[in-house]
Design a protein around this nucleic acid. Sequence first.
RNA 1: GUGGGCUUAGUUCAGUUUGGUUAGAACGCCAGAUUGUGGCUCUGGAGGUCACCGGUUCAAGUCCGGUAGUCCACCCCA
Length: 447
Amino acid sequence: MKVKVSVPKGTRDFTPDVMLKRKYIFDTLEKNFRLFGYVPIETPALENLSTLLGKYGEEGDKLLFKILNSGLDNKIENKEIKDISNKGLRYDLTVPFARYVVQHRNEIIFPFKRYQIQPVWRADKPQKGRYREFYQCDIDVIGSNSLLNEVELILIINRVFSQLGINVTIKLNNRKILAGIAQKINAPEKLTDITIAIDKIEKIGLEKVKNELAQRGLSKEQIDELEPVLTLEGSNLEKTAFLKTYLEGIEEGEKGLEELLFVMDTLRETFPAVYNLIEFDTSLARGLNYYTGAILEVKANDVAIGSICGGGRYDNLTGIFGMDNVSGVGISFGADRIYDVMEQLNLFGNVADVPAKVLFINFGNEYLPHIYGYSETLRENGISNIIYPDNVKLKKQFDYANKNKIPFVIIIGENEVNNNTVALKNMQTGEQLELTLLQAIETIKND
RNA sequence: GUGGGCUUAGUUCAGUUUGGUUAGAACGCCAGAUUGUGGCUCUGGAGGUCACCGGUUCAAGUCCGGUAGUCCACCCCA
């Protein structure tokens, strides 16, 4: 009987051609992380629910995949959720990393620079560029307050995306500036409402944002005072100049502005090309509420898709696990979205690899001793090869080479064994030569 | 969580408007023409409980309801 098979909602299989492209992205990321001295860690797919709950806001808690305790299959009726589930799938890599730091604090050498490339799970409703299982590629520096870390993260972003061929804009803001603005209009407790509303300015326009702010309990006067921030335009320098006056006397806001300026000035002076990608954007808020300083988000210039990388500074993430005063800053690359962007812009080019360079034709077991010897010699020369496992019609074997885009076929039969040669056929040109093994290796290497 | 579109062969899709005998095409797959030479061509073949469950009807791929999946927008996010 035929069974209907499928993967669960919002998850995907990755076929070999897709995997080869994904690996190219992961390799590019990893290579650059290593160049800046980050070391890898991994954490379990499962975390205790107590680790995860309450870290992502109300919305995040709803999107957590909770795991049924084992051995309870038939007993779940009339039980509270907390009784039947005390584990969940990780929602991101940052919170598990905070847990990791607290748990391993005695072995870790601070400042600790780690990278982590693993899937995360969210019970979101899937749509374009949004999956229930997707990979995050995180780098964080923990145990250092220096703003040089922020600068470094931007340099890494630049290297990665220029190597991948994606034109990006790096949007930059600072949570302290947002807090300062909220103080300026006498609504510090409305910080979250304000950021959620102004985050939408590009999408829905000024008037609707003002309506939303009113709905969220801001007075007419407060909204009027906020308006110059909402409509703020111009170069980075013009914007910061405005805020310098606007936030004068508000300590937290001034501090945020100072931090932002340090990062931007450092880049402008030493990496002007990178600085050109930076856009100070007061409407950048980012949902997660654990950020305290710099926040940044990377957008692809040529494709309409959500952000492909984002992050920021969190002064006290480990505080929720009882370890205070450890500041961290990090970013997360969204590999799946980067893939979608590159696919849309046709940036993979010749990344896709072939399974092997050479296919050995199978004429029967009597030739195997020769073929095995040759095959090993090719491998020692770094040439990947496949011996066709069945002695079937040549048409089928050649077909196999064609379909897999294997560029060379080697035929060894009676003639070749007698002459101590191989017949090397180039599948693109159709040219076939009788050569010694060494000549064949040279030909393949020169291809 | 809210709203909308879609679901027919391995794949991409016709057919649904106006219910009516045996549901089609292209590509792919298998075999042969061609047993030491692939791509092209020709011939033949296999492959569908029309997503699932129920309803209306003499009759449902076609109409109605529900469920699931998928895509899109919103919310939120990578």
